[in-house]
């Protein structure tokens, strides 16, 4: 590479106008032999290249990372599992409560119909008879009282004597 081109590139480099490719050209150039005037500049670029070759000295680094990752993983997994179960449980709870309330509403809207209370017809007949007897007893009681009123009625008619015979005649 001709030295004028390099000088131009270097000038651009110091002014921070070089592209990455041009900077690579400079590094490539300085890898070889250079004139004395550029000796120190060459050191700088060689330094950059040398630095890029530096590596983590520790050979077991990847393994160490793997071990540390394995240690830190299960904790996170457990937490996420617990969270997932909690989510499912919460969902079920919502569904169950919702169903309960919906059922309540439906029951209110449609009251239950009258249903048979006895499956055995004989028993049912007995019960019906009992109930009817209770009603007739009540009615008989009432009739007795009404008969008392009849007495008053008879008394009234004897007082009105004649009228009664006339009434009877008319009838």
């Amino acid at each position: 590479m001709d030295s004028k081109h390099i000088e131009r590139l270097l000038e651009k480099y110091w002014n921070c106008e070089t592209s990455l490719e041009e900077e690579q050209q400079l590094r490539d150039y300085f890898r070889g032999g250079v004139p004395d005037t550029l000796k120190e500049t060459a050191d700088l670029f060689r330094y950059f290249e040398w630095q890029k070759e530096q590596k983590i000295a520790n050979a077991g680094f990847d393994k160490e990372v793997k071990v540390r990752i394995a240690k830190s993983t299960p904790k996170g997994k457990n937490i996420s599992m617990v969270i997932n179960y909690a989510r499912i449980a919460a969902g079920l709870l919502v569904v169950i409560t919702a169903t309960y309330f919906v059922r309540m509403e439906i029951r209110k809207a449609y009251p239950p119909e009258v249903v048979d209370t006895y499956s055995d017809p004989k028993l049912a007949l007995e019960e019906t008879k009992k109930a009817l007897m209770m009603i007739s007893k009540g009615l008989n009681k009432g009739q007795k009282e009404v008969e008392k009123i009849k007495v008053f009625h008879e008394a009234e008619t004897t007082i009105q004597g004649k009228d009664l015979k006339e009434v009877e005649k008319k009838i």
């Binding site: 983590i56 000295a57 520790n58 680094f61 160490e64 990372v65 540390r68 990752i69 830190s72």
Partner: peptide, 9 residues
């Protein structure tokens, strides 16, 4: 090296 490990984790 410690820092790089921390970054990885």
């Amino acid at each position: 090296k410690d820092v790089v490990q921390e970054v990885m984790i």
